[in-house]
């Protein structure tokens, strides 16, 4: 099986496509600077972790650590301060709107797989899933996709609600940075569909991890953390199902697993949670899904 990327092409080892590959330590002040200027520019300046933060950074995986100089933070801080509370709220709104746009992306992807998208049951992933020969595995995959889609609907509602509470407009569209890639992705087999779902769930998870370091509003933080936790579960599940399919054990991707528990490979654990601390590989930057 060939791994897929967000744009449907085979990935480079560290490329999930579409998003901005960044060191995960994005400096809020640098992002705020662009918000307060009213630009849509991507701001992913890196900041060194001084003090206690620097200690944590040293213990995190290299790709999730700060690496640039502290001067980046210092030079950005003055203009960020000038933006004041309005800039804080503006960035929070952008983050929430982008989060809603990512949720729509997932809802649309899973709609295609479930035959409820624009192409109906003729959508390639829906055709492929319908053709799965093992009924338990097919039923389970449909259930996982259905539940995940329902979760993403609730996540979108939560993000939209937080957005309007802060005075922003609801984002109802899919994230434009990723939408075309998702629409054209080759998800014409169950294993490709599952792998692609994992790629996108990883992008959402990574994005929300990073957003938590940027957002100021407490309710927004609570929502992001709560949603991020569920995306992490989706990610583990799709990784596990994908691993079983790669090992020609797709028939074991069933709920309940029952007596087949003994037949699950021990490698499933490392497939589902490969690292103690996930490396942040691709994120949707705050402006990418903001309402213009």
């Amino acid at each position: 099986m060939t791994a897929v990327t967000v744009d449907g092409k085979p990935p480079a080892p560290d490329d999930t496509g579409g998003g901005d590959d960044v060191e995960s330590h994005v400096d809020r002040r640098a992002v705020l600077r662009t918000v307060s200027r009213g630009t849509g520019a991507t701001a992913v300046a890196l900041a060194a972790g001084g003090g206690l933060g620097g200690v944590v950074a040293g213990l995190l995986p290299s790709s999730a650590s700060a690496s640039a100089s502290a001067s980046a933070t210092a030079s950005a801080s003055a203009s960020a301060t000038a933006g004041g509370g309005r800039a804080d709220a503006a960035l929070d709104i952008q983050i929430l709107q982008t989060a809603a746009s990512l949720e729509t992306l997932m809802i649309d992807l899973y709609a295609a797989a479930l035959g409820s998208g624009p192409l109906g049951l003729a959508a390639p992933p829906a055709v492929a899933i319908a053709a799965m020969t093992d009924p338990a595995a097919r039923t389970t995959l449909v259930k996982l996709l259905t539940d995940a889609q329902a979760h993403h609907r609730e996540h979108r509602l939560a993000f939209q609600s937080r957005t309007t509470e802060l005075g922003g407009k609801e984002q109802t569209a899919a994230n434009p940075k990723y939408a075309s890639g998702v629409a054209s992705a080759d998800v014409s087999s169950p294993d490709r569909m599952v792998d692609y779902a994992a790629v996108l769930e990883k992008i959402l998870t990574d994005t929300y991890v990073l957003d938590l370091t940027l957002v100021e509003n407490v309710k927004a933080k609570e929502t992001l953390a709560s949603v991020m936790a569920v995306e992490a579960q989706h990610l583990a599940v799709f990784r596990a199902v994908g691993a079983l399919m790669r090992d020609d054990l797709g028939q074991l991707a069933k709920i309940p697993i029952g007596n087949d528990l003994v037949n699950l490979p021990p490698t499933l654990a490392a497939a589902a949670f490969p690292k103690a601390l996930e490396e942040i590989t691709s994120v949707a930057e705050p402006a990418s899904g903001a309402v213009p």
Binding site: S24, H25, R28, G49, G51, L52, G53, G54, V56, A57, L59, L60, A64, A66, T205, Y208, V209, L210, L212, T213, L214, A225, M228, A229, V230, A232, Q233, H234, L235, A236, V237, A240, L268, A269, A272, F273, K275, A276, L277, E278
Partner: peptide
């Protein structure tokens, strides 16, 4: 308060959620 502590807690939460799922 510290954003890198936030990041550490968030990354650990992700892993613990993955444990739960499996």
């Amino acid at each position: 308060v510290d954003k890198e502590s936030v990041q550490a807690a968030a990354l650990i939460l992700v892993t613990d959620q993955q444990h739960q799922a499996i």
